[in-house]
Amino acid sequence: MGIYLLLFALTVFYLLPIYSLINTSLKPDSELAKAPIKPVSNPTLSAYQKAFNRIKDNMLNSVIMTLSATALSSLVGCMAGYIFAKYRFRWSSIIFFCIIIGFYIAPQSILIPLVKFIGALGLYNTIFGLILTHTAYGIPITTLLFYNYIKPIPDSLIEIAQIDGASVVQIFTRVIIPLSLPGFAVVGIFQFTNIWNEFLFGLTLTSGTSSQPVTVAVANLKGTTVAAWNVHMAGAAISIIPVLLIYIFFLRLVIKGLLLGSVKE
């Protein structure tokens, strides 16, 4: 019995904020002053409509940014992970170490030169600037994840291909990529959720709806009056739908990515 009491308490802790979010987002303006814990009596989607109109362009920005940077960082990470997993050369383990350690560096330590660099390239306030940034900072973790994925592929498969005269590129496209397709699913989901949810780069590298990702737009929905709370909550709810769907339908792949990125196999 004690266990189920504990489970109940934990459920309240984890779900009360989410209940509060959904409940508030469904309220008409007239109900906002009522006790927020009580369920909405006349649920309406009007806050969702308002929020959606204000963030729909940013949703599109986020879709473009996230899909592009996920694809690019996965490809570059797969290439590097393959080389580090299957070839030894001078300095290879030190270079590998220097790449993957990049994942753990606090972004604040590179933020000022990043802004200057993106500005110098003429990419400030563009989606392309964000794609480049997210691709670059994705490389350490995608390289590590693909390394973990490709390492167990038997060397004999590569040797057979080599005897047949396959080059490094051919081995990559004909052996490594087909065998690491499940890896692409795991890495892709890991990168998609991270980049979609990212805020600091989006805030620092953009100014205005034309290129702002949805996280920044949702943060800007926060009004100074009570009346804006239902719209803010509705916008927040809309913005996490893609990631939430991934968690619900691909939880196993999500878990695999999180574990591969942190625990030694």
């Binding site: 984890y14 979609w196 949810n197 939430l244 939880l251």
Partner: peptide, 22 residues
Amino acid sequence: FRLIFLIPLSFSFVVSAAMWAW
């Protein structure tokens, strides 16, 4: 329960911040 325990992980910090501020 596994989903309940893990669901906050899927929330972006922006959404969590909005929710907890409320």
